[in-house]
């Protein structure tokens, strides 16, 4: 479990980092918290020729709130995310990520860019229609979550691009429910429900190649009273919209049933949670 040979660059600016990414023509990987990249390299499943360490780039951490949107620097660690109070849903989701040691290193930008279909933050980003702020040698652009996740561990980021921050709208009410084998594991099923602008949005992780946005269920909940019966129906619609596969830890049928159950739970939590009170 020793990585193959690679070059290492400690970038000191975003410009330097994206320049190095561009020059490597797709053979480079960004090292942020390293919680996924380093094990993959140790297993030699990841073999970048260049590792661009962005940890020393100033200005990539920190959080700011404006107009109901929290902007989170890409280098923000999960532990900081779990402790902040500006965005309670993100704080709750962050607490479900791994263990303390992992949260101390892992970063928000890294988790989004890694695009693990079972990871918590891509699910929340999908539910909230978060937007990634991306730098490349030509400048900057914004990628909405719906356009960002392309498949398991795949994004639409160019090989010369890096996420520098994410904009997460703050929901009025929210619910989060995850089923994992053990405390700290990736979720078998992760559901985030959030109410923004009077509309409930639902995203599910762990049940497909990218987080699933339950548009049918959302439509069912639009402009109706949020009752348990409506939630049951939304949960059913969510479960029927996914196409999970059998794997080591769960059958497709189980995942589908758990999607319904955890959608219901997330929605009930949304309804039970008083407005404006952090988790």
């Amino acid at each position: 479990m020793k990585p193959a040979r690679f070059d290492y660059l400690q970038a000191t600016s975003v410009t330097e980092a994206v320049g190095a990414l561009a020059a490597a023509e797709g053979e480079a990987k960004i090292l942020a918290g390293g919680q996924s990249l380093v094990p993959l390299m140790a297993l030699r499943m990841g073999r970048p020729s260049l590792v661009v360490d962005v940890n020393r780039i100033p200005g990539l951490g920190g959080m700011a709130i404006a107009d109901g949107v929290v902007r989170i620097g890409a280098l923000t660690r999960h532990s900081a995310l779990s402790e902040q109070r500006a965005h309670p849903l993100l704080a709750e989701a962050a607490r479900w990520i791994g263990h303390q040691a992992i949260r101390s290193r892992g970063t928000v930008g890294g988790s989004i860019a890694h695009a693990d279909p079972s990871a918590e933050l891509p699910v929340v980003a999908t539910a909230l229609d978060a937007v990634a702020l991306v730098a490349n040698p030509a400048g900057r652009r914004r990628i909405p979550a719906a356009d960002l996740f392309a498949g398991p561990f795949e994004t639409t980021l160019g090989h010369d691009e890096m996420i520098i921050a994410l904009d997460f709208p703050v929901p009025r009410r929210w619910g989060f429910a995850e089923l994992s084998r053990r405390h700290g594991d990736f979720g078998l099923v992760t559901v985030a429900a959030a109410e923004i602008d009077g509309r409930v949005r639902i995203a599910v992780g762990g049940v497909g190649g990218v987080p699933y946005r339950a548009v049918d269920a959302e439509a069912r909940l639009a402009d109706v009273e949020l009752t348990p019966a409506a939630f049951d129906e939304a949960a059913r619609l969510t479960a029927s919209g996914i196409d999970p596969a059998d794997d080591l830890h769960a059958t497709a049928a189980y995942r589908r049933a758990m999607t319904a159950e955890h959608t219901r739970r997330a929605l009930l939590r949304l309804r039970e949670r008083p407005e404006g009170v952090p988790a």
């Binding site: 084998r181 053990r182 405390h183 700290g184």
Partner: peptide, 12 residues
Amino acid sequence: TLMDYLMPTSAE
């Protein structure tokens, strides 16, 4: 790997 071969932690 230990991602798939699950061992109990104190939390379990």
